[in-house]
Simulated scan of single mutants.
Amino acid sequence: MTPRRSRQAAPAVLPSPLLIPLGGTGPEDVAVDHEGLVVTGVDDGRILRVHPRRPARVERIARTGGRPLGLEVLPDGRVLVCDAERGLLRVTPASDSGPDSDSDSHSGGKVEVLADQVAGAPLRFCSNAVAAADGSVYFTVSSRCYGLQEWAGDLMERTATGRLLRLPPGGGEPELLLDGLHFANGVVLAEDESCVVVAESGAYRLTRLWLSGARAGRRDTLIESLPGFPDNLSRGADGTIWVALAGPRLAALDWLHRAPVGVRRAVWRVVRPLGVRPRPIARVMGIGPDGRVRRDLRRRRSGYRMVTSVYAYEGTLVLGSLLENGIGVCELPESA
């Protein structure tokens, strides 16, 4: 099957997001729970629940003690959290927590470690997770060479050390499903759970692993040549896979990826102390299960930068960012 290539037609305009401050920085991923409330995490370890209706209200439901990134709300209200420092966690919101001396407790919410190592090695830079109906958890590790603070180094060197793993129902040792991924990031299951899709930020593509049927165990590409770095993924009610593009493709980086590894490392050593400045562009895309582009929304000169997550809910888009001090909320434009 030939993978779809991202179309080159001009994208539609993404409405200007309304910023809801969180009192913290870096709501890297966002999700919406069964009550229509936004769940996210910030850089001081807090897991927050946001009531987005005006006036907006923010409440803390737990603190992981690390740096939360990707998260997924489970059917029972608990939340899966990928923590860049502590591994794969499960959080019970404070109001539902009961006493449990065998688990870590932070700020009232119960925080359980589901996995903190793989084959005896510490689990670091755990990025995003999704739960299947049978209780399996599919989750990604972005890099085994660099941590969250040096994510740009992995993209420049193109280490291809990202992974997709599966935690069996009931826990146990994580199973390695895919290795050698280019900065593995967001992950989402198909509606029928026949396949799992993972974003490879460093390769500008969405990679698919078939879980059932005649193609079970096969890996292919759902869509390639995306116009930016795909970050977190979410699935809409109509089956659309929503992709946050954290930044546009850069010709200089494409050239660097073709250079020898020694050159790539040397460039990172020069760039590292200078830091990476994100462009003021916000862009999200909606991809169908067949790899066709359903929606492409972009805002130039956006005040909300480096969109790392997007969640569509009842005609609204909720945005997250690794840099901003709040989530963004805007109307989902009608499809042309």
Rank of each mutant, 00 (worst) to 15 (best):
Ser6Gly: 12
Gln117Ile: 02
Gly66Tyr: 13
Gly77Pro: 10
Leu74His: 07
Ile47Gln: 05
Val81Ala: 00
Thr2Asn: 09
Pro227Gly: 14
Ser105Pro: 13
Asp290Ile: 02
Arg300Thr: 12
Ser101Thr: 15
Arg301Cys: 09
Ser97Pro: 05
Cys195Met: 00
Trp210Val: 08
Leu71Cys: 04
Val284Pro: 02
Leu332Cys: 02
Ala56Thr: 05
His182Phe: 10
Gly135Ser: 06
Asp231Ile: 14
Pro260Trp: 05
Asp290Cys: 01
Val79Leu: 03
Gly180Leu: 05
Val263Ser: 06
Glu193Cys: 14
Val38Ala: 00
Phe229Asn: 08
Leu319Gln: 12
Gly108Met: 08
Thr40Ala: 13
Leu155Glu: 12
Pro248Phe: 02
Gly213Lys: 05
Arg300Ser: 10
Arg166Phe: 04
Glu35Trp: 11
Pro17Tyr: 09
Gly65Thr: 07
Val267Gln: 08
Ile287Asp: 14
Gly262Asn: 04
Leu14Asn: 00
Gly288Tyr: 00
Arg144Lys: 14
Thr140Ile: 01
Asn128Tyr: 14
Leu211Asp: 04
Met156Val: 02
Leu48Arg: 09
Ala244Pro: 06
Gly286Tyr: 06
Ala252Asp: 10
Glu157Tyr: 06
Thr240Gln: 06
Arg49Ala: 02
Leu233Asn: 04
Ile281Cys: 03
Arg7Cys: 09
Asp43Lys: 11
Glu224Cys: 11
Val42Gln: 05
His257Ser: 10
Leu148Met: 07
Thr308Lys: 11
Gly153Pro: 08
